[in-house]
Amino acid sequence: MARWGMVIDLDRCTACQACVVACQVENNIPVAGQSDSDRGRGISWIRLAPFNEGEHGTRPGLRLVPIPCMHCEKPPCTKVCPVKATSIGKEGIVAQVYARCIGCRYCTTACPYTVRRFNWKLPEWPDPMGEGLSPDVSVRPRGVVEKCSFCHHRLQNARDKAAIEGRALRDGDYMPACVESCPAEAMFFGDLDDPRSVVTRLEAGPRAFRLLEELGTKPKVIYLSKGESGADV
């Protein structure tokens, strides 16, 4: 059984935010508008987080890091959910079942990567965007928490296709919208248990690291950066 994971090469990423836009469109994420954005109530499943780099006066810099849900092997969010609305599946995807969520927001607090978002109101789209929603993704009601699903509706379709063709699901059968859209080819997606997959090879390289690794959450989103070490890969 596959263990899906993502690799983001920060040395290639140009912070263009194509992944953010692709995600909004793919997953029926409502447009927040000015007032809600000002109150921090906008929703995005993948965001670019700014990290200050270098020292002031010598080598100033700002690195923008795309942050989707890390789909941790040991997710802190699933442990605190009182109604089992979120859980980690056998293929390692941390799922959110909106119909079950009661909106207590324990999970948004528990997540160290702050990737979970709460729906403060009914979703709205400016005309005519509301008519172009994806039928593969449910529109979330008010009062539930949502987050990146690794585009698992694509996995459902891929799994369906593989089953009809009479073969097992394998690495490369599906990729999330963000990975597909990346113009700099900085994002990779695949099966971390498959020794021949690109993600496994990149994960083993010297540039690989995970965010907040010391917490023991074991994220399945792996970043690549030459950073200070200057490793040449």
Binding site: S87, G89, I93, A95, V97, V137, Q156
Partner: peptide
Amino acid sequence: VSVDCTTCHR
């Protein structure tokens, strides 16, 4: 058959 949430819920 799998009873993972993601098998059916979207």
